[in-house]
């Protein structure tokens, strides 16, 4: 029930929409379900809607988490 991918905001559009991008894929999504969406933010996109804002860049956060979990 949870197919969602991270995409970066490239442009804010009227009526609660935003243009987002992942690699070469660009699409327009609805951002009315998230508190904020600024150009440069990474949003989690599900069924054409942003459902959350990614707090930090993927990689750093994960490395930190895994480090905690494995004691390295």
């Amino acid at each position: 029930m949870c197919l969602a991918i991270p995409m970066r905001v490239t442009e804010l559009l009227p009526d609660g929409k935003a243009r987002v991008r992942q690699d070469d894929l660009e699409t327009v999504v609805d951002v009315s379900l998230v508190e904020r969406a600024d150009v440069g933010d990474f949003l989690i996109i599900h069924a054409g809607y942003a459902i959350e804002v990614l707090e930090t860049e993927d990689a750093e956060e994960r490395i930190r988490l895994f480090g905690e979990m494995t004691g390295r």
Binding site: M1, C2, A4, D30, S32, L33, H46, A47, G48, Y49, I51
Partner: peptide
């Protein structure tokens, strides 16, 4: 995950 999008 989906229900809020339909509601919107």
């Amino acid at each position: 995950t989906t229900t809020p999008t339909v509601a919107a």
